[in-house]
Design a protein around this nucleic acid. Structure first.
Length: 953
RNA sequence: GCCUUAGUAGCUAACUGGAAACGCGCUUGACUUAGGAUCAAGAGAUUGUGGGUUCGAAUCCCACCUGAGGCACCA
């Protein structure tokens, strides 16, 4: 009987649904285990073979854990708010809710095809009011709290108000955006509006002026990825930074806890490093410099306060607010010229050449507080407005950039650190002995840093300070398709949170999704919604994409709860995510925001853990081969002109641009010699009619308007394309749909092949041809049960050898699943099946165990076997086999006998043979004696079960 | 420039320092009108390069080269 995956798979899929096989209860005596996938944004192009990789891996793990006695939560849902649906709405007029719904249906069908063990009754969609009610609720909690730096935790804003009333804010050490001191009396004297503004500076969700990418020509605000090189990606119009009052989250408050938390989670080093980079903690001091001629001061941040004696000049960022104020009359022209130059340079220019030293002298001087020297103040674009205070004390002796700057502009350089004891040490190493530094002379750098900070604090000109690169997160989007922000404003502009009992604030329906002409979000059009009877107006910005995804993993625990975002009972049971699998592109954004929300909820006692994701694995991207054609940037005689990639190699790609071609037209797809023949050129023209009159210059002739003009007597030709391994996706016309693969090979085969491609975390190109091997393996496995015509299972007792083959596989597979090394599991299955076939083993005793063993990987065929063998119920609900060492023991082990590490002979010993006997036998062997002629044995190393090594000279 | 990560046969790849395994693919033969499937046999590696530690290195250390990802005038 042949293996017919499609028949078997359809049958069991239906069975599992009918029997609620994957339903998970929050009540169980089994230990819990929570496996999570990063939920997808349901895009219009559906899933390609790259998307399910992580889902399959986590599904295998979830199934394995379930079979190993755990109550496993393995849910799935949709990150359903987002920009693409909104853009689609703008261009096609389809409401985002409608297109999102369609896309979700499509995703669901594709996922169902792969038979994941998701408990779909727990599905969440972030765009549904019953879900985003709680996103809004958490937002209001953030709004209602501030962060106490001393306790390092969030506290209710009412506590802060109470303190203000008692003692003002001078003793309050809290994360804030504006730390102006006021007394209790002053607080009480403030108007409501003033008080609300003060509190806003402390709230974890707060409002401040921040900039948006405003594009006048498009009349809209653009997301960062819609802006390329300072112009809009669409249309290439200029984009400016426009200040707007927007909501932000005070993520910076948790910077220290973000860092500390990383020590307690099982994430990859690369991921942790990325997060640490992002947080960017640096320790140092902030120092105030007095200006020489005026009373103005300049505050700088430095990680090396010890080098202050070497600070021979200062540099301000060109955007620094003092620049205009302090520039002298003589230098005005130079400074203005320089500012013009800086403004002409895009962000990209600035980043591209970091070696060019530019700057201008302001004509002003400051006083170095330690040397009391007058030091000139310069401006230069190497100092960034957005980091620290936007000003530096320049120490040219110990900082490369300062040094290059000083050399170019002839500024003095004073050596302050003697690094002769530490050759090769860099600034970051903080090594050396202080010289030319007054009271610090002779100190080692770390000691000097401490001493400098102490002196700075004594002098009252600064303090030791920790600086972070991490910025607060912008929480406002001038978009429609997101969660409405449940805040209204009264006539004075004082904000009012909505009453919790009135949540959710449902996103009203619109028919025009474009932003308004003055850049307000689309919701501003809905005036009857915006303007409330009590005179309040609603916030019209919506929440960003990360809002709904920052806590969705908690909702899965208790998805239908109408009284809380999750019940205390459910969250106590499931705690947090044990294993999280997802793409590396979310390494900072999503993970940082989730950690922020989670830590906040933890402070409120609403979740039992400080970190949301115990173990996290990034699956590697499945890549596709992208095929490019070369097109002349200039038209030739008014026609588009394509040229063979081979000719490009000869004459270079100048003046040509690459356009991706639908890979279905390509001959020898993926090979270095991939090409289009005349037939494929015709397909290409049908696909892109705008090129129907284009000239195709091929190797052996030219194709134009349906005519092929050969150079010689050729009848066909190759227009070579360039192949490149890259992303798989719609825009490269190289996406492979899992549905197609499954239709041909079955879901079991697809699942195993995805795993077989390589280690989970590694990127690897998709190659449909390779799937044949896995398909062959499944047929071989099938042939252990069936001949062409009959079932051939026997009840015979298994031999020792057969049990050894089985238990070797059990041991290897269980071990490798634990390590998430699924590719080696597939390999182990192949070895096992081949060995059983060699032994002609068709015994139930062995095959039944094998069926369970393979069930996490290939659930359908496993279920089929399970029932063929006469069992009731689902193979998913039994116990996973455990390797029994008694079958793995060897009677005799073969040992390599080495001389000086090189294998010279082989000997067999029983596993418990004594060392000295093995040693004697080994040396006594004829072959070994021959090798030892003329040498004396210095030492013999016997490693049990491994080898014998004779050291001879 | 800095950080992370990986270089082993055409592809994939090894729990701990101990015989360079296994699988896919490939080649040849058998069976077949042919293909597929199956069976039998076989070839294919100086483990990126150069040092070091060790009785012994793919594995540990150092330097370099190459690929991937991230950060980037971060004071």
């Amino acid at each position: 009987m042949d293996y017919k995956p499609n028949e078997i798979e359809a049958k069991w899929r239906e069975y599992w649904v009918k029997n609620d096989t994957y339903k998970v209860s929050n009540e169980s005596d089994r230990p819990k285990y929570y496996v999570l996938n990063m939920f997808p944004y349901p895009s219009g192009s559906g899933l390609h073979v790259g998307h399910p990789l992580g889902y399959i891996a986590s599904d295998i793990y979830a199934r394995y854990k379930r079979l190993s006695g755990f109550n496993v939560l393995n849910p799935m849902g949709y990150d359903a708010f987002g920009l693409p649906a909104e853009q689609y709405a703008v261009t096609m007029g389809v409401h985002p809710a409608v297109s999102t719904d369609q896309n979700i249906k499509r995703f669901r069908e594709q996922m169902d095809n792969i038979s994941f063990s998701f408990d779909w009754s727990r599905e969440v969609k972030t765009c549904e009011p019953k879900y985003y009610k709680w996103t809004q609720w958490i937002f209001l909690q953030l709004y209602g709290h501030y962060f106490d730096n001393e306790q390092q935790k969030s506290l209710p804003i009412e506590d802060l108000v109470a303190r203000f009333e008692q003692e003002g804010n001078s003793k309050v050490n809290a994360a804030n955006s504006n730390d102006e001191d006021f007394s209790a009396a002053a607080w009480k004297a403030m108007t409501t509006k003033e008080q609300s503004d003060v509190l806003m500076n402390y709230r974890l969700a707060y409002r401040k002026v921040s900039t948006v990418n405003w594009c006048e020509e498009l009349g809209t605000v653009l997301a960062n990825d819609e802006v390329k090189d300072g112009v809009s990606e669409r249309g290439g119009y200029p984009v400016v930074q426009k200040p707007v009052l927007q909501w932000s989250l005070r993520t910076t408050a948790y910077a220290e806890r973000f860092l500390n938390g990383l020590d307690n989670v099982d994430w990859s080093d690369s991921l942790k490093t990325q997060q640490r980079n992002w947080i960017g903690k640096s320790q140092g001091a902030s120092i105030v410099f007095q200006m020489a001629e005026t009373s103005s001061t300049i505050e700088v941040f430095t990680t090396r306060p010890d080098t202050i004696f070497g600070a021979t000049y200062m540099v301000l960022a060109p955007e620094h607010e003092l620049v205009a104020q302090i520039t002298s009359a003589e230098q005005k022209g130079a400074v203005e010229d320089y500012l013009t130059y800086v403004n002409s340079r895009s962000e990209r220019d600035r980043m591209a050449d970091v070696k060019t030293v530019t700057g201008a002298f302001t004509g002003a001087y400051a006083i170095n507080p330690f040397t009391n020297e007058r030091i000139p103040i310069w401006i230069s674009e190497y100092v960034l407005a957005g980091y620290g205070t936007g000003a530096i004390m320049a120490v040219p002796s110990d900082d490369d950039r300062d040094k290059r700057f000083a050399e170019k502009f002839g500024l003095p350089i004073i050596d302050v650190v003697d690094k002769t004891d530490y050759p090769g040490a860099t600034l970051q190493d903080k090594l050396g002995k202080m010289i030319n530094s007054g009271f610090m002379n002779g100190m080692e750098v770390p000691e000097a840093i401490q001493a400098a900070i102490e002196r700075i604090e004594e002098m009252g000109i600064g303090t030791g300070k920790v600086n972070y690169k991490l910025r607060d997160a912008n929480y406002s989007r001038q978009r429609y398709w997101g969660e409405p922000i449940p805040i209204t404003y009264d006539k004075d502009g004082v904000e009012h949170p909505m009453d919790i009992k009135d949540l959710p604030l449902v996103l009203p329906t619109l028919d025009d999704f474009k932003p308004t002409a003055d850049g307000k979000a689309p919701l501003a059009r809905k005036t009857d919604w915006v303007n409330l009877p009590n005179g309040h107006v609603r916030e019209t910005d919506t929440m960003p994409g990360f809002a709904g995804s920052s806590w969705y993993f908690l909702r899965y625990m208790d998805p239908d709860n109408e009284d809380a975002f999750v019940s205390e009972k459910a969250v106590k049971y499931w705690e947090s995510v044990d294993l999280y699998i997802g793409g590396a592109e979310h390494a900072v954004g999503h993970l940082m925001y989730s950690r922020f929300w989670h830590k906040f909820l933890y402070d409120k006692g609403l979740v039992p853990t400080d970190e949301p994701f115990k173990k996290l694995v990034n699956q590697g991207m499945i890549q596709g081969v992208i095929e490019y054609m070369y097109m002349n940037k200039e038209k030739v005689n008014g026609f588009s002109h394509f040229i063979c990639a081979k000719k490009i190699k000869e004459k270079g790609a100048d003046g040509f641009t690459r356009i991706p071609v639908n890979v279905n037209f390509i001959q020898e797809y993926g090979s270095p010699d991939s090409y289009l023949n005349i037939n494929s050129i015709k397909q290409f023209i049908d696909w892109r009619p705008e090129y129907k009159d284009a000239i195709f210059e091929c190797g052996k002739g030219t194709y134009h308007k349906g005519e092929f003009t050969p150079n010689s007597d050729a009848t066909d030709t190759h227009l070579l394309t360039e192949s490149e391994v890259g992303k798989m996706g719609k825009r490269y016309y190289n996406a492979v749909n899992p549905d197609d693969i499954i239709a041909q090979y079955g879901a079991d085969c697809f699942r195993m092949y995805e795993m077989f491609l390589g280690p989970l975390e590694q990127a690897k190109p998709w190659d449909t041809k390779g799937i044949e091997g896995v398909s062959k393996f499944l047929r071989k496995l099938w042939s252990l049960f069936y001949t062409e015509t009959d079932l051939i299972i026997t009840e015979e007792k298994a031999t020792k050898e057969e049990m050894k083959v089985l238990h070797t596989a059990i041991k290897k597979v269980a071990q490798d699943i634990e390590r998430l090394s699924f590719n080696t599991c597939v390999s182990a299955f192949m070895v096992c099946v081949n060995d059983l076939r060699k032994l002609k083993c068709h015994k139930k005793e062995v095959l039944e165990q094998l069926a369970i063993l393979i069930a996490p990987f290939a659930p359908h065929i496993a279920e089929e076997f399970w029932h063929i063998l006469g069992n009731e119920g689902s193979v998913n609900l039994v116990s996973y086999p455990v390797a029994d060492e008694k079958w793995l023991k060897e009677d005799s082990i073969s040992y390599p006998i080495c001389i000086n590490g090189k294998k010279r002979a082989v000997a067999h010993f029983s596993p418990d043979a004594p060392k000295d006997e093995m040693e004697k036998t080994a040396i006594g062997m004829d072959v070994i004696q021959k090798w030892l002629e003329g040498k004396s044995v210095k030492k013999v190393i016997v490693v049990p079960k491994r080898m014998v090594n004779i050291v001879a000279k």
